[in-house]
Design a protein around this nucleic acid. Structure first.
Lengths: 162, 162
DNA sequence: GGTTGATATGTTATATGGTTACATTTATCA
DNA sequence: TGATAAATGTAACCATATAACATATCAACC
């Protein structure tokens, strides 16, 4: 229910905590949290922004962890299918989940000016969309919800009167 | 409020009406509804499904209306920015709007089995997303809402007991 | 009705994002 | 320890989208 994302926070702590949560989740579910997968998650967590697969790959290459696209995409596939990372369709980019482990439908607030992204929650089964789906007999399994606009900071810099 | 999309309908009539509505809208707003733009819209309307830009381009090429990607992308840009066509981010594909001219935030129900797409309406300013945005001071200008799942027909074919 | 500025198209080349296919290695577990 | 599955390395390729620039067409005014 908290948006975080556009506010300052203890970033080192948030990276550490998220990493620990994912590690625990993988141990519990017998998932292999391999070096490449771990490093990709670390990169996304510490950058704390949406990154393209090739941008992530550049970092991996610099570190000798793999140089070809499939390396990055495979790690991202793993992280996305387990809910540790989300893909932002509108940006063809990936971002670390802020509530790893918990089952949820993410929604994103994307600033068109500074590209900052905040994660919120959506409830696709409710509202008009849910009603339209129910009316037509459509079963929603997964949803993409991405709002574009201006974040608080950029809004102020556009309207300096604030 | 009607979903249409997964139901049978008078398709010839719906193509004709939509085309007429767009034509009227362009005349009223002094927009150039050129042959390429018109043909791209016609293709999308009559196919009545999400199509990739290159698939549309193939048809244009066959008809001698242009053979290079920018031709298709420019026509699509025009149609999308005027609300006659929507882009489905999840599919990197385009689909004709079912309510051309009217200002609205489209939402899509996408069948993962048969790729059928139905257009519904979303109200991003309401619900949890709207509240999260308001709470954090984010101003929503535009939204992508795309639900993946099973359409009525495919749902039945998966559960033959129905 | 011709001139001009804006809008639209033709075309080449290239950037960006993502997958296939197959060989090799590493983990898991009986 | 050996069999099987899962993960990685690597090359080649496919798919989506844009940049840049030349040419043509339109719209509107004198």
């Amino acid at each position: 229910m908290d948006t975080i994302g556009f506010e300052a926070h203890d970033h080192k702590g948030c990276v550490r905590d998220a990493l620990a949560a994912v590690e625990a989740h993988c141990a519990r579910h017998k998932l292999q949290f391999t070096p490449v997968r771990r490093r990709v998650l670390e990169i996304l967590l510490s950058e704390h922004r949406a990154m393209g697969a090739y941008e992530i790959l550049d970092t991996l290459r610099d570190e000798g962890l793999g140089s070809q696209p499939p390396v990055a995409y495979r790690a991202l596939d793993f992280l996305v299918s387990n809910g540790f990372v989300h893909k932002i369709e509108r940006l063809n980019a990936f971002i670390a989940c802020t509530h790893p482990g918990q089952d949820h439908t993410p929604a994103f607030l994307i600033c068109r000016q500074c590209d900052a992204v905040a994660e919120a929650h959506a409830e696709p089964s409710k509202g008009m969309l849910g009603r339209a789906a129910a009316d037509s007999g459509f079963v929603i399994e997964q949803a993409v919800v991405e709002a574009m606009g201006l974040c608080p900071q950029c809004r102020e810099s556009v309207h300096p009167c604030a």
